[in-house]
Amino acid sequence: MGPNPLYEETADNFQQTTDYYVSSDYEGLVPPICDGIATQEFKRIFEPCVQPLVFLIGVSGNSLVLLTYIFTKKVKTMTDIYLINLAIADLLLLLTLPFLSINAVKGWVFGSGMCKVMHGMYSINFFSGLLFLTCISVDRYIVIVQAIKAHKIRQRSIYYSKLISIIVWVVSLLLSLPQLIYSKSKWLEDGSRICKMIFPEEVTGAVKTTSNIFQILLGFFIPFCVMVVCYSIIIRTLLSSRSFKKHKALKVILSLVLVFVIFQLPYTLVTFMETADFLGSQEMTCEERMRKDIAIIITNNLAFTRCCLNPILYAFIGVQFRNDILLLLKNFRCISRDRYARHCRLSRNFNTPVVMDTSSFTLYM
């Protein structure tokens, strides 16, 4: 299935492993590595250290993106619409982090309703984020490779992008229905509570595994292949161009895709390997299960980190976006007019090209 922030199920998994050893080899003596304490201690230390930092940076950056589009930057192209929706999706995910940090320290104390919300918000963001990146890739392909067609649909591009965005959110919601329906909190024998997906008895392991594989393919590999094809054609087109400035126009979007793959792919691979182990009916040893659970914790938080990197990419790569941020700060009187004027003069003096001016179709023509 798609990534899930609370899918680790470490305590429950280790409880099952403990039962296995109690009834077979150890006759009541539970090996220390099977009790899940080491994994829970790692999670209790690791997540509260990483997640607050990701939350602060990500919420600040993505909020700044939205404020810039609201107050200083005009929305003129399909890419603008997709970037706004991408920032919204990242914010929705980041808002779950405070709950997850508390969960790492105290267990799940928010009830089954909030458990469904946390699972659902993460899953919806996973699918919508990747689909919006796919939409951006297709849009750039049309603008750069199919320039004549892009010019013809320019007048209705905003309408098309809004319609596509609605479709993306609906599809993401439908793909996240298993998380929204079957997620609930569960009491463990030690008195603690966890938040996990609990399927009814009539849903067999084969059905769940098939669902997992389907969502992995649709939620990552197929959209990723679309992006690879689009950008391969775009790169080939730009290489035949005489203007090297056009290469810089791709840096922002290419960076967004690469960051997504680098930070999201590890969790997808871990989930895929876990599904493959289930299909092969492989019995995990205690040490293997502990390594798997720790890998899920690390790669899941790595996926969270991606959400705070998109605004940083805009700020450090996109010159036009930096100008928009400074204009926003000037309008809110966070910086003086003189400082803003000095920055504008420096930009003109260095003749810095606009790396990603999404408001202009002629940039790629």
Rank of each mutant, 00 (worst) to 15 (best):
V75K: 13
K330C: 12
K292H: 08
G205W: 11
G205L: 09
V257R: 00
P266H: 04
G129F: 06
G113M: 09
C344L: 05
L91V: 11
Q15C: 08
D277L: 08
S176V: 05
W108Q: 02
T10P: 00
W187H: 09
L56W: 09
E189V: 14
F321H: 02
M118R: 04
R44V: 00
D293W: 10
Y69T: 03
L29A: 06
T299K: 06
S128E: 07
L83T: 07
S336E: 09
L363V: 11
I144T: 12
L254S: 07
L163M: 14
C230S: 07
L64F: 07
Q51P: 03
L93I: 04
K106I: 01
E283H: 15
T68E: 06
V354R: 15
H343S: 14
T268F: 09
Q282M: 10
S360F: 06
N4E: 05
F272A: 15
T352R: 07
L327Y: 05
I81R: 08
T17C: 11
N351L: 11
M118A: 15
I294H: 00
Q320H: 14
L309S: 00
T271Y: 08
N331Y: 08
G2R: 12
K162C: 11
K186E: 14
M365Q: 13
I194G: 03
C49D: 05
T79S: 14
I294K: 05
C286T: 07
R345M: 05
D293Y: 03
S359C: 15
V30I: 15
M356C: 14
D12I: 04
R322Q: 04
F244Y: 13
M284G: 09
Y267R: 10
G28L: 07
K184T: 11
I335V: 07
N85R: 06
Y7M: 06
L174V: 15
E8G: 04
K152Y: 09
I136F: 04
I102E: 08
T68V: 12
Y182K: 04
V109T: 14
T134H: 02
M356H: 11
I70P: 00
S360G: 08
N349A: 08
Q282D: 05
K73T: 01
L131G: 03
K106L: 08
I102Q: 10
A206N: 06
Y160D: 06
I153R: 13
L174H: 06
K76W: 02
L175V: 10
I198Y: 02
T17G: 07
I233E: 10
N103K: 07
I312L: 13
F316Q: 09
L265V: 01
Y231L: 12
Q320F: 08
K74M: 02
L269M: 11
Y267L: 14
I262P: 00
R291C: 03
K106N: 08
P266C: 09
F321C: 01
W108R: 06
T79Y: 13
T72H: 05
T68P: 02
L265Y: 11
S128V: 14
L100I: 15
C49H: 13
E202G: 09
G120S: 13
Y20V: 14
S232P: 00
K106E: 11
R156I: 06
G280P: 02
G219C: 09
K43N: 08
V226W: 00
S101Y: 01
V319K: 13
S240K: 14
K106T: 04
S281E: 04
F224S: 11
K208M: 05
V229M: 10
I136H: 04
